[in-house]
Design a protein around this nucleic acid. Structure first.
Length: 567
RNA sequence: UGGGGGAUCGUCUAGCGGUAGGACGCAUGACUCUGGAUCAUGCUACGGGGGUUCGAAUCCUCCUCCCCCAGCCA
């Protein structure tokens, strides 16, 4: 559960609940629900809603149901149901025995509809979809009443029953609520309650050929389940009068709908429509591509449930449209992994380093700390030898200002190893590319300390060439270059902001041998580089890592500043 | 000349008539066997105009800007 007693003390929904508890509005009950439609994968915006609904329930000693809003068989699939359940569980929430489906209530909903017809508050309309649209009017003009609006109760009952029996083709009739075609709120202009859909439903099969619309089903499901606070996003605000109307007409238990602003994040898109497009057009490898803002994407990327819950707490809940900086999410995962992830050494772009004065066949096992933030995580042994790999980026033939790392004649510390001084640079004769470095080491500095107390500013990570494991590392960047993917030129859409370099695959990486048995999904800090997690594509013979997020990189900032006109 | 919402540091968010606070971010410094972490310090915010009040982000009023709604989607 949400361990943290959140920094954001009290938002408007908590205030509402606290007041309802005080006035005993619902007999002291707090029941929320998370109601996904199984027509796609869950994203980080859903995570906000999940944390909110389940979090609120646990904070107030209430319950939160998981309810699939499966009223449209043409879009919904069991694959999505299973993926959604897995994601909610992974996030750390438990609906116990309260797994529901709107389709559980189809019969009940039908009977309520019959009641509404009998009360003269619903009618079967036989206008075509296009005609209904025309009759609806516009934002500024009232609609027109359908010629079928005043059918007799008997005729309505008969027609509705025959709709259910399957006597009619798709689109020939609908059941509509009889409200007000002149309402300023278009949702109140005789909304459709049922449409005919001869489609196979993932749970009810072909039991039904009429399916309830969201507005009709949702409030009633809430009512049936005894929900107290039905929390949804802002765009449902003007559906609330309808939500209330149905429950009032039926005179049934009446939960309250409360709306909050959905989450937006910089450098990504959040609508299911756009996400599905990224998948279908092959801009990403799938719903769980580590660049996707889906829960499964973040999971594969190496994010922890704790970090996502923490993020969810930190962003708060309000009614204002907003865009949260991706940097906050990155902060949350760094913070959690800094405390929990084992440190290891891995070299992404290897550069050979030969220690000329180190014995040819000698291998030493040096002790390395697993996590300086948590000594209880112990130490491990790392092999050191004459030929090592260091990070290509850690050497500069012509070191810039403030460069602490290796350069000709410079001395650096090899982490947990020795001090080495660069004595020679070997280059490719044709390309001029640096191929290998020669160094000498100071045997007195074993373990990384000098008895004479001399200081070195730079400490480099390394691996022993003969002992290192080969690995593939997938390095990710924002999926979209522009913080706002929707900011596009004439005639372009969000895809024009796609970052063509959002994935870089590094094939010749080397990691320390302790990683040999690293299980899929395990997370590590590669010292000085960032956090990495073993991808599911890993196999016995081949390690594959995803870079979850880099470490904060002060040097990158210094260098950037120096370059961009700084001193 | 429809209806419904919303405007507080760069970003997110507190505030509910009494000193505008926190977090992220950014900057500077300290410390450091990760240029990590940590610590310290700093950073031009109440959309605008009127009004009420001893006192207004908060109450009233006018205005401006932004978002959502014309699926037999949710």
């Amino acid at each position: 559960m949400t361990s943290n007693d959140s920094p954001t003390s009290s938002h408007f929904i908590r205030r509402i609940i606290a007041e309802d508890l005080e006035t005993n509005k619902y007999d002291g009950r707090v029941v929320t629900r998370f109601p996904p439609e199984p027509n796609g994968y869950l994203h980080i915006g859903h995570a906000k809603s999940i944390c909110l609904n389940f979090g609120l329930a646990s904070q107030y000693g209430g319950l939160c149901n998981l309810r699939f809003d499966d009223t449209n068989p043409t879009k919904e699939e069991v694959e999505y149901v299973e993926a959604i359940k897995a994601d909610v569980r992974w996030l750390g929430f438990d609906w116990e025995d309260r797994l529901f489906y709107a389709s559980d209530y189809f019969e009940e909903l039908y009977q309520y509809a019959v009641q509404l017809i009998k009360d003269g508050k619903a009618y079967v309309d036989s206008l075509s979809a296009e005609e209904i649209k025309e009759y609806r009017g516009t934002l500024t003009e009232p609609g027109k009443e359908s010629p079928y609006r005043n059918r007799s109760t008997g005729e309505n009952l008969d027609l509705f029953e025959r709709m259910r029996r399957g006597e009619f083709e798709d689109g020939t009739h609908v059941l509509r609520a009889r409200i007000d075609m002149a309402s300023g709120n278009l949702n109140m202009r005789d909304p459709v309650m049922y449409r005919i859909l001869h489609a196979e439903h993932h749970r009810t099969g072909d039991n039904w050929c009429i399916y309830p619309m969201y507005d009709w089903a949702h409030g009633l499901c809430d009512s049936i389940e005894g929900i107290t606070h039905s929390i949804c996003t802002l765009e449902f605000e003007d559906h609330r009068p309808l939500y209330d109307w149905f429950l009032d007409q039926l005179n049934v238990y009446h939960p309250q709908q409360i709306e909050f602003a959905r989450l937006n994040l910089t450098h990504t898109v959040m609508s299911k429509r756009k996400l599905i497009r990224l998948v279908q057009e092959g801009h990403v490898s799938g719903w769980d591509d580590p660049r996707m803002p889906t829960i499964s994407g973040f999971r594969r990327r190496g994010y922890t449930p704790e970090s996502i819950r923490d993020f969810s707490d930190r962003i708060g809940v309000a009614r204002k449209d907003s865009v949260v900086d991706m940097k906050l999410l990155e902060y949350c995962i760094r913070e959690h992994l800094n405390k929990s992830a084992s440190r290891v050494m891995g070299v992404l772009r290897p550069l050979r380093l030969i220690i000329d004065n180190y014995p040819e066949n000698k291998v030493e096992e040096l002790e390395a700390v697993n996590n300086p933030e948590d000594r209880a995580m112990g130490t491990r042994m790392v092999p050191f030898s004459r030929v090592l790999y260091i990070e290509r980026e850690d050497f500069r033939e012509q070191p810039p200002k403030k460069w602490f790392r290796l350069a000709p004649g410079r001395e650096v510390r090899l982490r947990y190893g020795y001090y080495v001084t660069c004595t020679d640079v070997v280059k490719d004769e044709n390309t001029g590319e640096v191929i290998e470095l020669h160094c000498t080491y100071d045997p007195a500095t074993r373990g990384g300390w000098s008895p004479d107390g001399r200081k070195v500013r730079g400490t480099l990570h390394w691996v022993s060439a003969a002992d290192a494991l080969e690995a593939e590392v997938r390095v990710y960047d924002h999926l979209f270059l522009n913080p706002d993917p929707e900011e596009v030129g004439e005639g372009d859409d969000f895809r024009s902001n796609l970052n063509s370099n959002s994935l870089e695959i590094l094939n010749s990486c080397r990691v320390e041998p302790s990683l040999a048995e690293a299980p899929s999904g395990s997370r590590y800090q590669f010292e000085r580089l960032g956090y990495f997690c073993v991808d599911s594509d890993s196999s016995d013979g081949k390690l594959v890592f995803n870079r979850t997020v880099t470490l904060r990189d002060t040097w990158a900032k210094i260098e950037k500043k120096e370059k961009s006109g700084g001193s």
